[in-house]
Amino acid sequence: MPFLEFKNVEYSYVGGDDELIQALKSVSFSVERGEFVALVGCNGSGKSTLARLCNGLITPDSGEVLVDGVSTTSKSATFDIRKKIGIVFQNPDNQMVTTIVEDDVAFGPENLGLPRDEIRARVDWALSSVGMSEHAGSGPFRLSGGQKQRVAIAGVLAIKPELMILDEATGMLDPNGRREVLEIVKKLNRDENMAVIMITHFMEEAAAADRIIVLDKGSIAADGGKELFTTPEVFEQAGLDLPLYVRLAQRLNNIGLDVGCPLTADEFADAVAKAVKGGEGKK
């Protein structure tokens, strides 16, 4: 049984001009424990709707969302589902409940009704996992955007969910903040075997995931591993840019230097070095 499963999910809502917007059209996919999935799509593709469907903040018009085989429509299961699936939202300022970092991180475990020592232990663990231990006693006001978002991640982490969804959690951060958050998410996925769904339109972030789901106008346009980047048409149709290094590599490939499909700066450098050396060797 998959951990999270969407079965022909449809969802629509009334938009600003009183017109019915169909956000999701017959979406089906599943996510296993420990997976690192990037969900990409441009604005209005239904990404955020999909995130909010996962933990029962909204329920599908038709179809089913199953978490560990339990439907999110059942009111009695909502609490258990939210223990298993945590969401980090876009704006860190709108996720803070208190004026002190550690109190905010404690909010989740407090809601779970854990004993005091356990809450303390989880807060300390969560803050050190995101590298924010030294700011435990300070007010979020003095923190940078990236630091605030790390606190928000710690707040979700302290609940110890099996799946963390980041709903454009890096959207309001500068490049440094984005890098910080991405590193932490990768580490959590690797060390804690926590499944991650990273919703983003930064393709460099998507390239870090093991699996990429492309959402286009409410339906899944593509779903696959990193090999998806070799078929740029999928992304272009969904209104997305390819990652910088993939685009660079494409151009090099076009002029006859075979560098394959590197995703990061290091991979790109290696591929170019190899291709150039190989070329020289032939001469």
Binding site: L57, G86, I87, F89, Q95, N111, V156
Partner: peptide, 12 residues
């Protein structure tokens, strides 16, 4: 947004 974030963090 805050209400969603609180709900997501098991607030009841």
């Amino acid at each position: 947004e805050l209400a969603d974030a609180m709900d997501s963090r098991c607030y009841r």
